[in-house]
Structures are given as C-alpha cells and as structure tokens.
Amino acid sequence: MIKNNMTSLQRVLTTLGHNEPDRVPFFLLFTMHGAKELGLSIKEYFAKGENVAEGQLRLRAKYRHDSIYNFFYAPIEIEAFGGEVIYNDEGPANSGIPIIKTFDDIKNLEVPDVKSTHCLAKVFKSSQIVKEKIGDEVPIIGVVMSPFSLPVMQMGFDKYLDLMYERPDLFNHLMKINEEFCVNWANAQLEAGTTAICYFDPFSSTTVTTKEMYLKTGFEIAKRTIAKIKGPTATHMASGRCLSIIEDIADTGTAIVGVSVNENIQELKNSCKNKITVMGNLNGIEMRRWTPNEAEENVKRVISQAGAGGGFILSDNHGEIPFQVPDEVLMAISEAVHKWGNYPLVC
C-alpha cells in the first residue's frame, strides 16, 4: 500500500492493525452541525435520511476528516420503542416521559421490528445514500446504544440503578429484550451500507458502575451482543472513565474504545497492549471556546501522547461535538491534524 495516497478507510484499517498509516486518522463526530450546513433547524434536519446524508457529505468535504457519522440522535431508539423525542434548537434531542414507568412495565415490553419502524428507516436511507456516493473510500459509522446503557433513557437513571440493585430478575429480562433489539438494529444498519457500529456504553464506564458490577453485567452483555453484530464495533464510553477495565473492554471483541479526557490517553494506550485502538480525547465542552491556537496545541499534544505506532484515532471525548463549537475551531483541528499528524510523527 502506498502510504501517502491512502483513502480514509485504508488509513483507519491500518491504524486498527496497530501500524502507522500516512497520517493520524481523525473522526469529527458531528451530529447536529449538518443542520447548519443545510440551513435547517435540528428537527427539520433529522426528519429525513436524505438531509443527514447530504449534511455528512458536506461536512466531510469541508473538514477532510476520515469518517461519515450516521448518528441521528440518541433517543431514536426510544422512539422505536414507542417513546417520545423532545427536540431542541440548540442541542441534542432528549427522550421524553420514560417508556418504563414501573418495574412491571418491563414484563410487557416488546422488541420493535427494526425494519418496519419509520424513525429507523431514516437512518438506513442515509447510510444507503452515502454508501452509493462514496463507496469504500471512507468508513460509515452507525450507532447503537448498548443494551446495558439504553435503560437510562427507557426508565431514567435513578430508577434503572434501583432496578439493578433491587430487581435482578427484571433487569435480566430487560437486558434480553434490549440485546435482541441492539443486535437487529446494528445488523440492519450494516446491511444498509454502514461499515462499522459504534456501541455506546457509558453505563459500563467506571464513572457510573463499579468494576465489580461491570464484570457481572455490562461486560457479559457486551460480549454476547458484540459477538452477534456482523461487522466491526467501536465501544464508546461517552466521556466516562475506563482505564481500570480497558483490557476487559478489549476482551468483549470490540476494535476501538472511545475514551475520556479525564484519563491520560498515553496511559490508556499503553494499557491496551496493542489489543484495541484508542479513540479520543479532545475536550468537546472546552472546544466551544478554544482559539485556533489552542485547538492546534490540543491536537498536537494528544497526537504526541498517543499517535506513535498506530492504534489511535483522534476525536472528541464524548462521541458528539456540541452544536456550539464554531467552524473556525473545527477547521483549526483539521488543519492541525494535517500539519502534525503525518507519520513518522515529528511532535
């Protein structure tokens, strides 16, 4: 392979093999920014798969990053279960009233049919359009919530914690439903042209769950679920810590782990021992007020800490760049990667 002429997909695959590509691959994980590009409100933008496909293609042309992020909004899965989505003009959509109001509601919960659910069809459409336009040049990343993390939106964080500690029987029943949905949802996205699945699992992070609890629950659930997803996966902790469980995460069969700015990325990478690629960990919240110089310094710092030897993708630490991050900062990040990310590294 000619190193200085790699496509984004070749670049990503090389780093996943723990080799150095032509430059550090970087994922600008945009969800809402496409709406700005198209001059639409966030709600209008996510109403059609065609909008998201066009938004993602325009963003990639503008910032020259290495992925298409076919992620609409987190509560789309709640919508599939019959729940409510509350849109916001300035930020990500939230789920409305929980679909599980009492523990007994879990007994009556049914797995949605992913192929006949209108809201999910928008995602398949977007993936199909992008795939037709760009083929295998760039990885198309689809998103699922892990079966273990989805109940935060299905029933609320506090009720879910109560369920875990007080009703293990119903917890297990809910996991069975969510695992079936997650696998079907992921595989349908892969059939529609998606290259890889981002498995969002913040509830497994040690910020939320103890390692002991994770090994009994989130770890086993991830192993079972990821084994049934017919494509590569990236596990994302959505700003949560994972250093003490990073080897366990690698053992779930995932290829990438998205890590928090609260942990040292060099230490995380060293702990992986070439078993898993590390993705991160620019501070997406601070990014909103960075100057272009600060953006460059942060990119340079993270690349110098984690870039050597491949096994690294630069991105934000949450898996979603806030709507308020200005174009000039995003452009500065892109330019910094193109300046400082070329292998062999000089920073």
Binding site: D158, M164, T209, T210, M213, R241
Partner: peptide, 9 residues
C-alpha cells in the same frame, strides 16, 4: 475516579 456514580447515588 475511585468510586462509581452508582455508589454515590
């Protein structure tokens, strides 16, 4: 990073 949110709650 020593304890988890589940424990705090």
């Amino acid at each position: 990073g020593v304890f988890a949110l589940s424990q705090v709650y």
